[in-house]
């Protein structure tokens, strides 16, 4: 294999990592602040991709993709907020298993609703011309959309970091991550915080769905695929840690892309071997904080 092909493979891995980071950071945020393992996170990603197809169709052209990028995360965040207020809120303080299974129930419901609206046919979303094709650096051509995804991930990562470190909301979230029981006692409006966090997490998944659209086939079942990969990311990185999510995303994305090149049949298996190895070595992930959950 040539060096150039290897670089391209790593690029593919990194652009996958970019999407994984955006999606998994939402998963990690929701777990960190609310201690909810949200299986429906995959649904938010899938809904994001499908709704993006609709929105882009309505608006058309470049405006369509940009419009989808702006509108869809809000739509998905609203859906997330609705689910939190309507159902999950009633389950706080009960067994974690019930919360997890409730999100699983939503995964089932949403998958059928999407099937009802869009049918079984695969959909596609096109990136605007500006982001298509490749840009040359030295001797290597880099796909522009991959570069765009990486830039998007960096922007989102920085944005989340600013949100967590510089705002009142971020301070509350960090407080929730370190000690959820204390929150109510220090005067935080816990139920509003949880709604906001859950909506934010859903919005990130929706955004990930839009961004992944042009690079993947938009298809029923993508909810299940992404949730397994996202779990691998946050487990490797450590639940509730932003840096960990970034490292986990890169590790999973690049491992998978290189695995595909060298041992295609075992690529995903390698990801899981890495995951098991990390958990056995460090049970709370690379950057996770030991906690009872």
């Amino acid at each position: 294999m040539t060096g150039e092909a290897l670089v391209l493979q790593v690029m593919t891995g990194l652009s996958r990592a970019a999407v994984l980071f955006i999606v998994a950071s939402g998963l990690s945020l929701v777990f960190g602040a609310m201690r909810i393992v949200n299986i429906a996170h995959g649904s938010f990603y899938m809904v994001g991709a499908f709704v993006a197809v609709t929105v882009a169709g309505w608006l058309g052209g470049v405006v369509g993709f940009v419009g989808a990028l702006l509108v869809v995360p809000l739509v998905v965040a609203a859906l997330g907020g609705l689910i939190e207020v309507g159902a999950l809120r009633r389950l706080y303080g009960k067994e974690h298993l019930l919360q997890l299974l409730a999100t699983f129930a939503f995964l089932l419901i949403v998958s059928d609703v999407v099937r009802f609206i869009y049918g079984e046919r695969p959909q596609s979303l096109r990136a605007p011309p500006l982001l298509s094709g490749a840009t040359r650096f030295g001797d290597v051509f880099f796909p522009r959309y991959s570069l765009f995804l990486m830039a998007a991930a960096v922007v989102i990562g920085l944005g989340l970091w600013l949100l967590l470190s510089r705002t009142g909301l971020g301070r509350d979230i960090r407080a929730a991550v370190s000690d959820p029981e204390m929150l109510g006692m220090v005067g935080v409006n816990v139920s509003r915080l949880f709604t906001v966090v859950f909506a934010l997490g859903a919005g990130l998944a929706g955004l990930g769905g839009v961004l992944a659209g042009p690079q993947t086939t938009i298809l029923l079942g993508m909810d299940i695929d992404i949730i397994v990969e996202s779990f691998a990311v946050v487990i490797i990185g450590g639940l509730g840690s932003l840096v960990g999510t970034a490292v986990g995303a890169v590790l999973v994305g690049v491992t998978f892309a290189l695995g595909i090149t060298f041992i295609p049949s075992a690529a995903l298996a390698i990801v899981f071997v890495v995951m098991v190895a990390v958990l056995v070595w460090r049970p709370y992930g690379l950057f996770g904080i030991p906690q009872e959950a």
Binding site: A105, L108, I109, D112, V113
Partner: peptide
């Protein structure tokens, strides 16, 4: 799935 999901949700809640 939508039926199963709804039944589950009802039981959980």
């Amino acid at each position: 799935n939508v039926v199963l999901g709804t039944v589950l949700l009802a039981i959980i809640l």
